[in-house]
Every structure is written in structure tokens, then in C-alpha cells.
Amino acid sequence: MDENKSYLYDFIKGLWKENPVLVQLLGMCPTLAVTNAVENAIAMSVAVVFVLTASAIIISLIRKLIPAQVRIASYIVVIATFVTMADRYLAAFYPAQSKALGPFIPLIVVNCIILGRMEAFASKNGVFRSILDALGMSFGFAIALLLMSSFREILGNGTWLNMRVLGSWWDNWMVMILPPGAFLTLGTIVGVSRFIQTKLKKA
């Protein structure tokens, strides 16, 4: 149990062992919706890294001031503030991305990963550990989104981050860009990661 207390563990647990997407299956909505292109996945990940880390700092600082009865409402107010900042920033400086992501940036407010980390971690731990936890979780989210969007964009469009990776002989698998492709990819990736996890445990 010593491992659970270390600062390093606070950070790395989100990357793989408690990965929010692959293990906890949280935040499925943006995961499925924005992974049709790597570009969108990166924009979404950056927004989540910012919102999650900034909210964790604030919540862990004021955690003793928040009455238990209204804590969820308080978290939402803090999170919504940062989401609005991220949303406005994207709309101002990267209008194309903002348009492509549509409602999914404002919807970060209700993303379970963020609310979950506030409730499970930031409201119970100090600032430093909360930052580590938030960074680990949001990087874990980013890794999963990158994996999925790479898979979908390469198969569905023959490109990666708009660069051609498969030659002209490649026939695009339309389905991978469409919603069914998101479900197929998520299922496959979660399945494979579970398979690796059980193999590692046995070894």
C-alpha cells in the first residue's frame, strides 16, 4: 500500500492503471464524438487538460470551505468557469477547431472524468497531489483519444493529422469516420487493453 501514497503514483495511475477512458469508461460522449480526426482529438485533449488541472487547483484550495450538501453545485460552478474560458479561447484563436468540436467543448462541464476527479480526489487532497492526479488523468484521456483518433483517421481517411500516410491504393473505410466506427474502435481498444492488463497481471 506504500505505492498508493507516492506522488509518482498519483500521476501515473491515470495513464494506464486507472485510465479514465480505457478502464473507468468515463467521458464516453466526447470520446466517441470527436475522435473522427486526430486534429479534433488533440484540441479536445488540450481543453480537458486545462479544465481538469485548473479546476483541481481551485477545488483543492477551497475544499474546506465547501459545505458537503452543495459540493456538486460548487464543483460545477468552478468547472463551468474554466470551460467557458477554454471555449471562448478556442472560438477566438482556432475558429475552425471550435466549429468542428461544436457543442462538445461546452459539454466538458458535465464530463464525468472531471466531476469524478473533483469528487474522488481534489476535494480530499492537497493542491500538489491534486495537480498530479489531474495531469495524470487528463493525459490518460489524451492518450486514449489519440489512439482512437489515429486508428479512425488512418483507416477512414488514409491520413494522420491531415498528412497522407496510406498511398492512393487505400480505399477509405467510410464507416470508421462515422459513428459506428467510433463504437467499433472503442470496443476494440478497450478489449485489447483489458487483454494486455490481464496478461501483465499474470506475469
Partner: peptide
């Protein structure tokens, strides 16, 4: 169904 969704024209 997969082929239909992946290659609708063909």
C-alpha cells in the same frame, strides 16, 4: 453491414 457502411458506393 460493415461493408455497406465502409464502402457504400462499391
Amino acid at each position: 453491414a460493415f461493408l455497406q457502411a465502409a464502402f457504400p458506393v462499391a
